[in-house]
Design a binder for these strands. Structure first.
Lengths: 155, 155
DNA sequence: TTTAATAGTTCTGTAACATAACAGTTCGCA
DNA sequence: TGCGAACTGTTATGTTACAGAACTATTAAA
């Protein structure tokens, strides 16, 4: 069946009312904006989001194991290997043998790693501040709080 | 350098203070919870998130083109083809020829499509309600509002 | 009327993981 | 004290969910 098209001069606005009713849709949209921004910051340092997240976790949890890192990042141990390989290859962290358990490594950030970590945190904070400049401090707190409560309602 | 490990009996809690300072990290965590829940609902109907989103958009925007759909879903036209193929193959939507422009299709939901659409919306709403049961109506509104403002601060 | 732009399509590539199977090591306990 | 179970890291392979480039058919613009 052919439709006769009355060509609209104005860009026809698409309705997404139903999808807007779902928190997942709105959350994904907002998340993509934030994620793309972070992506841009990290790309300049040749880092992916998960790699940087790993660096953060190692920075404030010295001598943790790869399995612990996997748990913290909520990814599989096999995926951690790639991330840790990358960080170690760039001398941002080190794998240290553990006396008493020859299976595990103790991951530790290097001086070079800590310098990069601190620099990127600074940059990312600035970007985030610019991105959230519409929101007051109170609103940011509210947003963080609500998101955490959603996260903790996992089945 | 080997680390001597004093084996902790309690599961050592991993610190993610720095990452928690970033909205992207907390948002991703919350989003994953919501997304996994939606994923479970849709899996029972053999649908992926984007495919269902497309069905929603077509349901309330009759006779839109694939390019418009791509714009609405923020994905490439080449990706839309796969999604529309899937929906058409399952007879949930139809591609209709347009009189006056033989390049484009007018996408329209079928009766079967609308029935499935309405059923899934119902189910998804219930799941979402259960998931957000910790939040009051006012808090949900606040969350939606803040997320939309973040989304609209895209550069 | 030639040229440019647009819609849909196909093919190939990529990112960011998961899954399964494996070796080395340590633990539980009979 | 020895042996199977459990655990750590690793490799190889598969999956998901797209993007990008190049193509055809069609329409619009110069």
């Amino acid at each position: 069946m052919a439709i006769s098209a009355s060509k609209p001069a104005t860009a026809p606005q698409i309705d997404d009312t139903t999808l807007r009713g779902f928190i997942g849709y709105t959350m994904k949209r907002a998340y993509m904006v934030v994620r793309n921004d972070m992506h841009r910051v990290l790309a300049e340092h040749d880092l992916r989001v998960t790699t940087f997240s790993a660096l953060c976790i190692i920075a404030e949890n010295s001598d943790l194991t790869q399995t612990q890192l996997a748990g913290a990042l909520k990814i599989e141990r096999s995926s951690v290997v790639v991330v840790v390989d990358e960080l170690e290859g760039r001398e941002l962290i080190s794998r240290n043998r553990v006396e008493g358990d020859r299976r595990t490594y103790a991951l530790r950030i290097t001086l070079k790693g800590r310098r990069l970590f601190e620099r990127i945190v600074e940059e990312a904070k600035q970007h985030e501040n610019a991105l959230l400049s519409d929101l007051s401090d109170a609103e940011r707190e509210t947003l963080f709080g609500l998101l955490k409560r959603v996260e903790n309602s996992a089945s």
